[in-house]
Design a binder for these strands. Structure first.
Length: 103
DNA sequence: TAGATGACTAATA
DNA sequence: CTATTAGCCATCT
């Protein structure tokens, strides 16, 4: 499938361990920041769970998604911590520290 | 088949 | 400064 979804997954897969990316950054990589919405749906659908580290994708505040596809937000939090990322009590990460930008 | 919705963000009023 | 509108695309009803 050569649609926007594949592009999204391609970018997400490029996120190194211990780093996170925002929807906006991914969308900007695709050439249009407004695609951030599509990214959200793409990960919500989550057809490639296991291949796509959707837990490394956070919103612009660094906050984790309220409805994690696999389990609860707790699961995402656990996975991030497992990679060495410190998640705050309010389920947010330090973007200045963990934000990964491709360009 | 057509319309509404959603893990969002940035720009404008 | 805060609040609202616009824009994207796939899936759901």
């Amino acid at each position: 499938m050569n649609n926007i979804f594949e592009e999204i997954y391609k970018i997400v897969k490029l996120i190194p361990k211990g780093k996170v990316m925002t929807y906006g950054d991914i969308a900007r990589c695709l050439g249009n920041v407004r695609l951030s919405r599509v990214i959200g749906y793409a990960l919500h659908s989550n057809p490639y769970f296991g291949d796509v580290p959707c837990h490394r994708v956070v919103n612009r505040f660094g906050g984790l998604a309220p409805n994690f596809a696999f389990g609860k937000i707790n699961a995402q939090k656990q996975m991030l911590e497992n990679e060495g990322i410190v998640v705050r009590k309010d389920n947010t990460v330090d973007l200045e520290k963990y934000r990964y930008t491709i360009n």
